[in-house]
Design a protein around this nucleic acid. Sequence first.
DNA 1: GTGAAGGGCCAC
DNA 2: AAACGTGGCCCTTCAC
Length: 591
Amino acid sequence: MEVYFRYVNTADGLKDALDDLRRSDILGFDTETTELDPYRGELRLVQLSDGKNSHVIDLRAFASNGSLHGNEQLAPLYDLLSDPTRTKIAHNAKFDAKWARHHLGCEVNGIFDTYLASQLIAAGDTDRRHSLADAAQYFCGIELDKSMQVSDWSAAELSHQQLEYAARDAVIMRQLRDQMVERLASDELERVAALEFECVVPIAEMELNGIYLDQPRWREQLEKVKTAQAKTADELQEMLSAGVAQASLFGRAEINLDSQHQVTDALLNLGVPMPASTRAWQLQPLAEQYPVVAKLLEYRGVAKSLSSFGENILEFIEPQTGRIHADFRQIGAPTGRFSCSNPNLQQIPHDRNYRRCFTAAAGNKLVIADYSQIELRILAEFSGDEAFIDAFVSGQDFHAASASRVFGVSPDEVTDDMRSFAKRLNFGIVYGIGASRFGLMTGLSQNEAEDAMRKYFGTFRKLDSYLRNEGRRLIEEKDVRTASGRLLRLRFDEKSREEIASARRYGINMPIQGTSADILKRSLRLLHDSIRGTSAKLVNIVHDEVIVECSAGEADQTAENLENAMCSAGREYLQKVPVKADVKIADEWSK
DNA sequence: GTGAAGGGCCAC
DNA sequence: AAACGTGGCCCTTCAC
């Protein structure tokens, strides 16, 4: 592939390049960096292309003392990148946006992200891959050689091969986008694409912001758990070795308490009637009769805390900022939910002892907001069930309100048991629970569980018919969509009853979970726009929860901005059901 | 040594 | 060994 490019390393060259680039309002955009982490490396190249000619800007030529900040010559580049009317096409634009933000101080606006577009068009097909090379092959039939990606971008003089590679990645973006635009239109994915693209910058900023972890407090908590773990491990070891014959001859036989196999053998030797798996929910019923089982469950709890939420999380603290900058994948699940890793901030135990370690930095506050029952509100909207909707409109405790209807008692006669029962059923419905599982969960017999569910659906008749009709439709049509139009194509073996049932549960759940993700993403963009120029910074998101850090003086205003963003976003997607977000100002991450 | 698979468990 | 959906991380085991 012949690539026409200009290498830019002078002020005049940059001026000419930008004059040329301004002739097109849709530009391919890419960067080359010396590291993957913007806090570690150098932003070496910025490449921009109109689809025919590319300009490869060597930023090292514009740096003073290793910094690009304050260089007036770069102002036109800054203007181009931040201009929302000029589309910047990038693959995984979050990456480039982070480097532009941190090294140029520039917010990239008008993003078209070919990585996210590729994921949206794949509609949940897990066989599809979404690297630039894969997308170029799939959409344009172009073979891309990515071997230069990992070349040395810190070299004093970059080779012609490197520059040509850099230019090429920018030049192909235009045709890739043109192909994708057609597919987004024909698959009716334009609205969800816009939603995803406008969310890139808020997420890029959130990753740069990071979240503050109080290290001494975390270590203190860690020591407590370590002590508990050692004691529990010792006791469990003692109890298990009682069942090992050689114990008295060679001293205590050491059992690897983390080994599924060894623990099962030891328990069998002790005469415990072992179920097929040693998972907690299966062992729970045996815990009362066999103290050793109770001890095992106790051990598992502390062991998990220590391994997953121990020392290792401290290694993620970035020395430059003293904060944790996790990786968020914007379309982490086919439903549209985020996933998070290194570390996963979405699975920090709810236990206050852990969450209270995540705090605001000195002089700051955390503003924490979460959507109230968002998934159930979405289900109410989709089903159009008046009783379901009324329970939300009236503003009372939803689980209590549904219990009142199911049990046929007045709201003030609802007992804790009734509420808990209704709550478990309400959540179960969202996941497509069956009577047998519900029975196991509540201790009801199969018949009693069936009766309860019949009564529930007898109360919420339109919910019942929605679930039935939609379940039938999605098996026939093999696709489902969220409120933003996000698409999932279902794949299942039509001859397999299990696969059909599984596809039905998945297909019922996806639009609910996915619409919740749509609403969260929209709220992040609205929040981003409303806190611009203030001290407020997005620091974490957990599916239906948003955490913002700001100066203490701006906490009240930030709380108002956050609540407005979340509720406005909800109202864009839900018309029949009110949307509620609970907001609080705190020093620590806690409920 | 390294990496994939399976089991288990944390979050929403 | 879930007939309750989505993730990531840790551990052991086992193949290469």
